Amino acid sequence: MVYKENTSDFTAVNEAISSYVLNSPFSFNKENITFSEFFENKMLIIQVIKNGLPFKIFNAIKRIIPFTEEDWASYLNISTKSLQRYSNDATFVFKPIHTEKIIELAEVNNLGKEVFDSKEQFYLWLNTPSYALHNLKPAELIKDSYGKELVMEELNRIEHGVFA
């Protein structure tokens, strides 16, 4: 599978997140914010999780993270039919539990995009068993919060040239 960086997709995510924050009840953050900057503001992330993520933003994120519909359904622990139904509701907002998982997956992908030279290399790493992760695929581990933390730690080690 070939992955292409599509700057218009990143622009759409940046615009969607920025618009959401600017038009939200979050009183402490009223500035334009990018996808990468979003992950640096933990208080903002907490507020977004509490309020839920609109499907529009999920859809923008989905375009830059090439997981299949089945992958997303599995990670979110909902059916593909439910995801399709949500896509037809312009006002749909994910529950906090699903919002948190979407943000976690986006955070892993954001760091992976920074660590690896290309999206292709990151997704190859994500789907290859890792000795440092007890020969599990990082993609298997990101299904839960503890596994996501292990994957983030491993990405940080790779970024700093520390290999297990």
Rank of each mutant, 00 (worst) to 15 (best):
W72K: 07
W72G: 08
A73T: 01
S74V: 07
S74A: 13
S74Y: 11
S74M: 10
L76Q: 04
L76K: 09
N77M: 13
N77G: 10
N77E: 15
S79T: 13
S79G: 12
S79A: 04
K81F: 10
K81P: 00
K81M: 06
K81T: 11
K81A: 13
S82G: 06
L83P: 02
Q84I: 12
Q84R: 11
R85C: 01
N88T: 07
D89S: 11
D89N: 15
A90E: 11
A90P: 10
A90L: 11
T91P: 00
T91M: 06
T91Q: 12
F92E: 02
F92W: 09
V93P: 01
V93K: 15
V93A: 09
F94Q: 02
K95T: 10
P96H: 04
I97W: 03
I97M: 12
E100Q: 14
E100L: 07
E100P: 01
E100W: 05
K101Y: 02
E104F: 12
E104D: 15
E104K: 10
L105W: 03
L105G: 05
L105Q: 11
L105I: 15
L105K: 10
L105R: 08
A106V: 12
A106D: 03
A106K: 03
E107V: 03
V108N: 05
N109P: 07
N109V: 11
N109C: 14
L111E: 10
G112Q: 03
K113Q: 09
E114F: 08
V115L: 03
V115W: 04
F116W: 01
F116P: 04
D117K: 13
D117W: 03
S118G: 02
K119A: 12
K119S: 14
K119N: 12
E120F: 12
E120L: 08
Q121L: 12
F122Y: 15
F122W: 01
F122I: 03
Y123V: 00
Y123K: 04
L124Y: 09
W125F: 02
N127F: 06
T128Q: 01
T128R: 07
P129E: 08
S130Q: 13
S130E: 10
Y131S: 14
Y131A: 12
Y131P: 03
A132C: 09
A132D: 15
L133W: 07
H134W: 10
N135W: 10
N135P: 00
N135Q: 14
N135E: 11
N135L: 12
L136F: 13
L136C: 06
L136S: 14
L136I: 07
L136H: 15
K137W: 07
K137V: 03
A139D: 07
E140L: 12
E140H: 13
E140N: 14
L141Y: 07
L141K: 03
I142R: 05
K143C: 07
K143M: 10
D144L: 03
D144C: 06
D144I: 08
S145R: 12
S145N: 14
Y146N: 06
G147T: 00
G147F: 02
